[in-house]
Write a protein that binds this DNA or RNA. Structure first.
Length: 686
RNA sequence: GGGCCGGUAGCUCAGUUGGUUAGAGCAGGGGACUCAUAAUCCCUUGGUCGCGGGUUCGAGUCCUGCCCGGCCUACCA
């Protein structure tokens, strides 16, 4: 087997919030793959970095009253701690806000310019005069120019589906300051991707570059048409790198972020006396990116074009994975399933999650479900009952006898497991971790069968059977050792514990071919505790409470605020409306009402059809956009607040005769208002 | 509306280029054992392979229509 040279990356986490279990799918998947390749004796480096630029970072820093640099430093430290807590081992962890990255971006930019791939033209954009910043689409709200629906973002209307440019919005408002934005024109710099079409097409068509579904998606979605120019610049103020010779213009975060892969490699090279070109301009070196399916677009169209422009090698393979769901549903703050890595580590061992993810991951983009009962069951029955228990049940004898000097006849058991090495390795290499885990568990079953047949506990009772006992121990512990080696990429802690007990390292894949002999055995203490579902539930419960009290922020960003100070994220996301008088307010008749029936509107994505009672025989039919947040059955009977004198509106599914009051940012983040006890249907709210 | 992925035992999934009686783990039932973290081992129940057509000597596997779920995207590749 020839030695491969492999550079591996995971996507750069955005420096705007903590690492959660969804992120960890990717880092654990990558770390397992990297550890495996290292055990195989290949020359591998695993690099990653924080993605630190963009408007969102700027706003987070402002909100916290610190500089952007302070903000990203803090986040970087937290990220690295979180990763270390899950045994994710980078060779280099950097930041896109580094000198190396700035220099590389400038070089690549220069090459793009000299190859005439950059075009400049003026773009009209909304500008917030108070915050003195141009506004990205998601920082503007206004009425849809087509259907007039209020509170629509700057790119499309979620009511009628119309797409438009932010400057077409009627009565736009900056969601950062609440000010009315102005239209300003500014030059922007575009990368002309179409000019690189052939490069990208050939790369995508090359076998092995992409999973077929990704290649299909790109071909159908983008390559069938002219590739649009890509806006690579943003106008000040912006937290990022200023474009050389273009004061006031910054590279868009998605330009400098992937360059961070190279910059971080460079940092590693500097620290280890290696050459960057040996990794990025060496056709014999492999480059593997692990990413989520949400960022395929950036890594498979622009990125190869940019690499080619800068005369770097194109990625060997982009491994795309799906999203994490919990108990079959999207992670949600309301359900307490938006679990931070740090919270997980307060309650549970990293090995549990690493193993569980491994049993669920294949080389595909399917979403991965963290099903809590299944999680507990898999960890307990596979890892604890089968694998760890194998040592536990013979460690006592092992300490007495040690390992024999010659490997006894085991009827081909060790040889069988040694022969599985290639199949297991092939599965790991192909990213088919679930297959690898199945193969390994089959070996664990076989080993336990052996112990049952050999009955060492009986041998231990007769002094004349000491030698046979030693043989049985030798076989069992060697079968176990093979398991520990095969599982080492997933369970580095177990690898270490096993090495200590056996008094010999397990860092090389080939060690599974040769039995360990003539060795004293250490004292065993439990390698792993059983997982109690109560601990998992407790973790989810705590997460739920923290989210509730931390004034859940609208995006995944925002570091948890201190206990006594609520985050201002909600207010920033939706600034105060213009002042109104008491007379204005009096026009709105808010009433307490009781929900008497609630049903799904099957054709509607967001709506529930409610009938509410105002007391007596007064009822109203109301459509409410709360489908994602509430089960109809849970609503019947509860008191809510409605706008009782709202002009009825004919909707696609029927007439809506009012509006149910709720707080929150929409989607699953919807919280109905309820009155304190004592209020009855019909009470007006003053 | 379009695209992609999936629908195999109660649950999670395997089923290689179509080839005998469709498999595993867990759960359920029965038994054994007591070294071990109420762990382990043996036996066992359980499937119209989403539904309907078609190709074939033969279809879970190929073609086609439909149904369901997930994701992506939108005057629409």
């Amino acid at each position: 087997m020839s030695q491969r040279q492999i550079l591996v990356t995971s996507a750069l986490p955005y420096a705007n919030g903590p690492i959660h279990l969804g992120h960890l799918v990717e880092y654990i998947q990558t770390d397992i793959w990297v550890r495996f390749q290292k055990m195989r004796g290949h020359r591998v480096i695993y690099v990653c970095a924080d993605d630190t630029h963009g408007t969102a970072i700027m706003l987070s820093a402002r909100r916290n009253g610190i500089s952007e640099e302070q903000w990203i430093d803090t986040i970087n430290r937290q990220h690295q701690q979180d990763f270390a807590g899950f045994d994710i081992q980078f060779d280099q962890y950097g930041s896109t806000h580094s000198a190396e990255n700035r220099q590389l971006c400038a070089q690549i930019w220069q090459q793009a310019l000299s190859k005439q791939l950059i075009a400049s033209r003026d773009v009209q954009q909304l500008y917030d005069p108070e915050q003195k910043t141009f506004l990205a689409d998601r920082f503007v709200k206004g009425k849809c120019p087509k259907c007039g629906a209020p509170d629509q973002a700057g790119d499309n209307c979620d009511k009628c589906g119309h797409t438009y440019s932010a400057i077409e919005l009627v009565d736009p408002v900056s969601t950062i300051s609440g000010a009315a934005p102005e239209i300003r024109s500014a030059p922007h710099f575009f990368f002309q991707l179409e000019k690189c079409r052939e490069i990208v097409e050939n790369w995508i068509a090359r076998p092995g570059t992409l999973q077929s579904e990704t290649a299909n998606y790109l071909r159908g979605h983008f390559l069938s048409d002219t590739l649009r120019d890509w806006d690579l610049s943003r106008t000040a103020p912006y937290f990022g790198f200023e474009i050389p010779d273009q004061p006031g213009h910054y590279w868009y975060v998605w330009f400098d972020a992937p360059v961070g892969y190279i910059a971080t490699t460079w940092q590693w090279c500097q620290a280890h006396g290696e050459s960057l070109n040996d990794w990025w301009r060496n056709p014999n070196a492999e480059i593997h990116h692990f990413i989520g399916k949400d960022i395929v677009y950036f890594h498979t169209l622009f990125w190869p074009a940019i690499l080619h422009t800068a005369e770097y090698e194109l990625p060997t393979r982009v491994h795309v994975h799906g999203f994490l769901t919990v108990n079959g549903r999207k992670m949600s703050k309301r359900d307490g399933t938006f679990i931070r890595g740090r919270k997980y580590l307060e309650h549970l061992q990293p090995a549990y999650l690493r193993y569980y993810y491994a049993t669920k991951l294949g080389d595909n983009q399917d979403d991965l479900d963290l099903n809590v009962p299944e999680f507990v069951e898999k960890v307990n029955s596979d890892l604890v009952n089968k694998v760890v228990n194998l040592v536990a049940r013979c460690a006592k004898f092992g300490a007495q006898t040690g390992l024999a000097a010659q490997y006894p006849d085991d009827e081909g058991r060790f040889a069988y497991a040694a022969a599985q090495s290639d199949a297991i390795a092939a599965a790991y290499d192909a990213g088919e971790l679930s297959r690898a885990m199945r193969l390994i568990m089959e070996l664990a079953d076989r080993a336990n069968q052996f112990v049952d047949q050999a009955q060492p506990w009986k041998l231990a009772k007769s002094p004349d059977q000491t030698e046979r006992l030693r043989d049985v121990v030798t076989i069992t512990l060697n079968l176990y050792r093979q398991l520990a080696i095969y599982l080492a990429p997933v369970l580095p802690t177990l690898q270490q514990q096993s090495a200590e007990l056996l008094g010999a390292e397990l860092q090389d894949w080939r060690m599974a071919q040769v039995p360990l002999l003539n060795q004293t055995i250490g004292t065993y203490s439990h390698f792993m505790q059983r997982l109690d579902i109560k601990d998992v539930e407790k973790m989810i419960e705590e997460t739920k409470h923290e989210n509730a009290s931390a004034a859940a922020t609208s995006d995944s960003g925002a570091v948890a605020p201190t206990a006594t100070v609520d985050s201002d994220a909600a207010l920033l996301a939706e600034p105060l409306a213009a002042e109104c008088t008491i007379e204005d307010f009096a026009k709105v008749d808010l009433r307490v009402a009781r929900i008497v029936s609630a049903e799904e509107v099957p054709e509607a994505r967001k709506l529930l059809k409610l009938v509410v009672s105002l007391g007596g025989d007064q009822t109203r039919q109301v459509f409410a956009g709360i489908k994602a947040a509430y089960e109809p059955a849970d609503l019947v009977g509860r008191l809510v607040v409605i706008v009782a004198n709202l002009k009825p509106r004919q909707m696609k599914f029927g007439l809506s005769e009012g509006m149910v009051c709720a707080a929150g940012g929409g989607g699953t983040e919807v919280f109905l208002l309820s009155p304190d006890s004592g209020a009855v249907p019909g009470h007006r709210i003053h």
